[in-house]
Design a protein around this nucleic acid. Structure first.
Lengths: 265, 265
DNA sequence: CGCCGTCTTGACGGGAGTCAATTATGGTGG
DNA sequence: CCACCATAATTGACTCCCGTCAAGACGGCG
């Protein structure tokens, strides 16, 4: 499946869309590439036949050699506890890159599974590096940094928010992500089950259900199974993350630790 | 974070130790460098005067331009909740690299603070990249991947473990890290307060205290304030992460999701 | 010696987990 | 087309782990 230039020929099978026409490009590894680099990148990248729901792309312990970008559909990644329960660490939407965590030890520390019919771009890691592209290198670091920050936020959610706030935060997160993708932030449906939501938020599914009911009864959202309609995103945001009552806007430190730095931004 | 023996040389001032003689090199960015690269790297890197306990190196929202490696001492990083409470995301020991999360958006999403008198190496990020060193690039990706996996594990801890297991896991983690650094895994003292431990593990300090007592009463550890002595690391490990009762050793999936992969462990 | 911050220990209550029953839904085959 | 079933989701009742409140112990240091 090659193409020197954008052809008028419509291919029957995996319908390879050129990276330079892909509306997700600004999210993916190829975001900042110039034309020639993009061709190299496109040469490295491959499409895959669609994954059905429940299909795993890699599993905890697998040797790492490939990164994946979600083209359509959605995925979850999860780690396993010693007693075999799964802990979902993240959900991945179109444009998101999966597998970066395995760059550490060369072995996947998590598993990745499709939540619905999903198309991926596959990107062999060593071939990617051998491109020696500065912009790719930079982008890889960007995306890895993002993943760390996203996880830090999730740790904060698990560590500090109660059940109400967790579900609200979850919905706000998806609203924002859908909006960034050009979809409606107020109307979307979730591809994951209540069990997955609960697992991700560390709540029992009954609790998830109850919190959905609570948000519905407060007229913040409408819920029909996995179809979500947000009445006021801003109210929901407030609900998810209540701020300090009034006074201090730039929190100078709530505790008493010193802050003596000679840093000039 | 001290233990065992010190070096014979007592240095007066910043006493710049050459990277090539640094016993922490294998942990840091310069791990895989050849001689000439190492010189370039050393040229980029700088030492800093020691930080006192409580001093912040960067804060949430600061512009990102520098990475830091812990040389001696220890640090914590934390994010802030909207209402100003801090959530500790990680503790950093000698050899650990701090600041990678900020590669994502060019702005720090967390703050970093010294837990005790601490010496850092500072590494200007852009100068580092301009070295165009393949081994440095690779190492950056490695370390970023590690950070992601570490956070995934912490998410799993917060999501799935109860109070007993959390503290035990915490101690095991530090035992392993000290051992990797060449210190005793069975005897060490913690540089952080009960409050910091509780914050990190998402437990009230009273609960931390109670769990310490429980581990002590079970003869798994001895505790004297921040001085920890582990009687049986393996028992503690078992306690931290109980496995499946018997039967299934390679968990085929506890839930009912499909697993259509041609994987052989 | 006395103050203060850190830590420990006890008593109590609440938020969310667990158990259980009911309803809704979507897929499948007669 | 509908009956049937398995899965998913909701709702209620009860329980328990851990957070909160409160008091006291232990050092460290001026």
């Amino acid at each position: 499946m090659r193409s020197g230039k954008t052809d008028n020929v419509v291919s029957i099978k995996p319908a390879k869309v050129s990276c330079k026409d892909c509306r997700l490009r600004k999210f993916c590894l190829a975001a900042d590439q110039n034309v020639e680099e993009l061709e190299m990148f496109e040469d490295v990248t491959q499409h895959r036949r669609p994954l059905e729901r429940g299909t795993q792309v890699f599993r905890n312990g697998d040797k790492f050699d490939t990164l994946y970008t979600v083209r359509t559909g959605s995925m979850k990644t999860y780690t396993l506890t010693p007693d075999g329960r799964e802990q979902i660490n993240g959900f991945y939407l179109p444009g998101d890159l999966i597998g970066l965590d395995a760059m550490g030890f060369g072995v996947h520390g998590s598993s990745a599974e499709a939540l619905e019919t999903t198309n991926l771009c596959t990107i062999p890691f060593n071939r990617l590096l051998s491109m020696q592209s500065e912009s790719i290198q930079r982008r890889l670091l960007n995306l890895a940094g993002e993943q760390i920050q996203i996880r830090d936020q999730h740790i904060t959610l698990l560590g500090k928010e109660n059940a109400d706030q967790r579900l609200a935060s979850f919905l706000v997160q998806f609203a924002d992500r859908f909006k960034a993708l050009g979809y409606s932030a107020h109307q979307f449906n979730l591809s994951m089950s209540r069990a997955d939501i609960g697992n991700y938020l560390s709540l029992a599914i009954e609790t998830v259900s109850r919190q959905f009911a609570k948000l519905r009864d407060s007229d913040l959202i409408k819920v029909d199974r996995r179809q979500i309609s947000i009445n006021s995103l801003e109210k929901l945001r407030k609900f998810a993350a209540p701020e300090l009552p009034t006074n201090i806007q730039n929190p100078m430190r709530v505790d008493g630790s010193r802050t003596a730095l000679s840093v000039l931004t």
